[in-house]
């Protein structure tokens, strides 16, 4: 499988990445190298091998349902680009 310029542009848009026009060919080339590796791996016969959700042979430990986080809004909003009336303020998003 090889990616086209259109695919790269679409994924870039979804990921909100800005890829300059003069770099796009390099990106296509490196992505295609990765995909070639994936393609090679796909030649391995995986029939009867269960799908692995995680490479670690362990299961999740859980925490008790307790409130442990104090209110640190002041500290977080100090480093926010813009915060007013307790709200984080971002450029207008309209639905």
């Amino acid at each position: 499988m090889k990616v086209s310029k259109e695919v790269v542009e679409q994924v870039a848009e979804l990921s909100q990445l800005n890829i300059p026009e003069n770099e796009i060919n390099d990106v296509i080339e490196s992505l295609n190298q990765v995909l070639a590796l994936v393609e090679e791996m796909q030649s391995v016969d995986t029939t009867d091998v269960p799908v692995m959700a995680n490479p670690l042979d362990a299961t999740q430990t859980l925490r008790a349902d307790k409130v442990t986080e104090p209110d640190q809004r002041g500290r977080f909003q100090e480093i926010a680009p813009d915060a007013r009336d307790g709200l984080y303020v971002v450029p207008r998003v309209v639905e």
Partner: peptide, 12 residues
Amino acid sequence: LHEEFQGATGID
């Protein structure tokens, strides 16, 4: 919250 600020969106 789209109505709180002029030209900006507030996030809670």
